[in-house]
C-alpha cells in the first residue's frame, strides 16, 4: 500500500494542478493577512472559502484522477495486489496531496505572519483540520461516483451535482423547511439535517471554536444549545470522521465487486 500511496503522491506532486492549488492558498493567505492585518477576520474569510472550495476541489480532482488513472489501475489489478490496497492507496495519495497543498499553502503565510504568538493558533489549526476532513470526505465521495459510473460524462455530472447540492442547494432547502415549519418545534430536525451534510458540520465545528454566535446561524445555535461548545465540537468531529469512514468503506465494497 505504501508504494501505491507514494507513487500516486509523486505523480500528483509533479502535476501542474497541485501546484496551482497550492499557490492559490499561498496567495490567499498572504493577501488576507498582510492586507487586512486582522487575524480573526482573516480566519472567518478563510473559513468561508475553505468550506466551499475544498469540497469542490476534492470532488473534481477525485473524479478526474479516478478516470485518468483507470488504465493504470487495470495494470495494477493484474499485479499480485489486493483490490482494496490499490484503491485505498490511490485515494490516500490524492487526499494527502490535496491536503498538503491546503496545509502548506495556508500554513506558510500564517507562520511568517507569526500566528504562533497571536493567540489564534488553535482556531487556525481547527480550520485546517476541517479543510483536511472535507478534502478526505469529498475525495472519497468522488471515488464512489467514479467507481459507480463507467460513463465519464455522467460521472463528472453527478460529481458536480453532488457538490452543488451539498454546498448550495442543501442550505436553501433547509431554510425553506425552517420557514414552512416555522410553528413546529424543529430543533431535532435541524440538528439531524446538519449532521447529514459535512459542509454544515465543519462550518459549525469552526464557528463553535471561534465563538462568534452571530455567525453560528440557526443550526449552529441549536448545536451549541443542545450539546454545549466542547461536546458540540467533539460530536461534530466524530461525525466528520464517520463521513470519511463510511464512503471509504463503500468505495472498497464497490471496488471488490466491480468488473474492470
Amino acid at each position: 500500500m505504501r508504494r501505491i500511496i507514494w507513487y500516486s503522491l509523486y505523480d500528483l506532486l509533479r502535476s501542474r494542478w497541485t501546484l496551482v492549488y497550492f499557490l492559490f492558498y499561498l496567495a490567499l493567505g498572504f493577501a488576507l493577512l498582510f492586507l487586512n492585518n486582522d487575524v480573526s477576520k482573516a480566519l472567518i474569510t478563510i473559513m468561508n472559502i475553505i468550506v466551499v472550495l475544498t469540497p469542490l476541489i476534492g470532488t473534481l480532482f477525485g473524479v478526474m484522477f479516478f478516470y485518468n488513472s483507470i488504465e493504470f489501475t487495470e495494470l495494477l489489478l493484474a499485479q499480485p495486489i489486493k483490490r482494496q490496497t490499490i484503491f485505498l492507496g490511490q485515494y490516500l495519495g490524492l487526499s494527502l496531496s490535496l491536503s498538503g497543498s491546503l496545509v502548506l499553502g495556508l500554513g506558510l503565510p500564517f507562520l511568517l505572519y507569526g500566528i504562533s504568538s497571536s493567540g489564534s493558533v488553535q482556531e487556525f489549526l481547527l480550520l485546517l483540520t476541517a479543510g483536511v476532513f472535507l478534502t478526505f470526505i469529498f475525495t472519497a465521495l468522488a471515488f464512489n461516483i467514479g467507481l459507480s459510473n463507467t460513463n465519464r460524462i455522467r460521472g463528472f455530472g453527478s460529481a458536480i451535482l453532488m457538490w452543488l447540492f451539498m454546498a448550495v442547494i442543501y442550505d436553501g432547502l433547509f431554510l425553506i423547511a425552517l420557514m414552512v415549519f416555522d410553528e413546529y418545534p424543529i430543533d431535532k430536525f435541524a440538528l439531524i439535517a446538519s449532521c447529514l451534510n459535512p459542509i454544515d458540520l465543519s462550518r459549525i465545528l469552526i464557528l463553535l471554536k471561534l465563538d462568534i454566535s452571530v455567525l453560528l446561524g440557526y443550526t449552529g445555535a441549536v448545536f451549541q444549545q443542545f450539546f454545549g461548545t466542547t461536546r458540540g465540537m467533539f460530536i461534530s468531529l466524530t461525525l466528520l470522521m464517520l463521513w470519511v469512514l463510511i464512503p471509504i468503506w463503500r468505495m472498497i465494497r464497490i471496488a471488490i465487486r466491480k468488473d474492470f
Binding site: Y10, D11, S15, E71, F72, E74, A78, Q79, I81
Partner: peptide, 16 residues
C-alpha cells in the same frame, strides 16, 4: 497473479 505476466490491450500510464 505473481506468477502471471499480463499485457493489457490499452497502454496508458500515469502521465507524470
Amino acid at each position: 497473479r505473481s506468477d502471471i505476466d499480463y499485457l493489457p490491450q490499452i497502454a496508458n500510464f500515469p502521465a507524470n
